[in-house]
Amino acid sequence: MLNSLLPGPPLKPIAPGSDVMNDDAPVPPLRPDHFPEVKPNEIALMFSGGVDSTATAVMLAEQYDKVHLVTYRNGYGHWHHHRSHMRLDELNKRLDNKFTYTLISTKGYFDKVIVDTVMADYRRYKSGFIWFMGCKLAMHMRSIAFCLEHGLTITTDGSNSDTAEMVEQSLLSLSLIRFFYEDHTVEFGTPVYEVRRAASRELIKDLGIRMGVQVLDRHLCIQPTCVAGELYYLPYLLMNKPVNHDEIAVSKFIEEKEVICRKVLGAYFEGRGVDLDTLLANRREQIAALKGTD
């Protein structure tokens, strides 16, 4: 318990210029003439260590040989990432070492997607949702890169209808993001979207995994803290004030920022010496061949 309250060890990249902040799982090498082999029995999960993403991890472990847990850090009041790592140890002990863990800094991408233009965007969209949607888009963009690097065809997260007031977990956002993934040969799923929180809690409790400190419907001290998120959703949580997410504005925002994400993604692979379009073409061939053998 005390460990989860402490700030955790300082984080630094595993190599100069890298955005990966831990060395638990190796970063696969990429070569222009040799692309990663597609692995249909492995899956990625955007993982915080909270109730929903832990329940998702447990469910995925039943169906896949390996689950790649990926945690992101946006660099702005986003702390206590060692809590997610503590979760990894708990999961691996109970579920046959099926999990790998990677902590990635999305600060550079987040800056490009929203932070650098945040005041201009706020004047246009007139709501603080831009911070969270921009943060999540940067994470999704990096998740696509992660899947392409590791040969994965499916990625998931712990989005849940019980917390659909969060802009990035609304059906509209998830639907648009799903198309963004599809364009990059990755399927995006939300396996626990319709699972009630009580059921997720039971699933985790049955495995003897820590539940943290429960306050109302929230579990504290088991996942990273996001100060901006806490501030933005405070009026809703404390005073039942409706969140201000105009659906048209959200869809316009995602459409606009996806253009930036595509450019950043192209630049990311260029930096790794690989042409993104060639990599995607190779994956499409591999996926078609796999479907043909099914």
Binding site: S161, A164, E165, Y236, N240
Partner: peptide, 14 residues
């Protein structure tokens, strides 16, 4: 109610 506009508890009296 989980898909209610503004959140499932939005506008509930306090």
């Amino acid at each position: 109610m989980a898909r209610c506009c503004g959140g499932k508890n939005a506008g509930k009296p306090i």
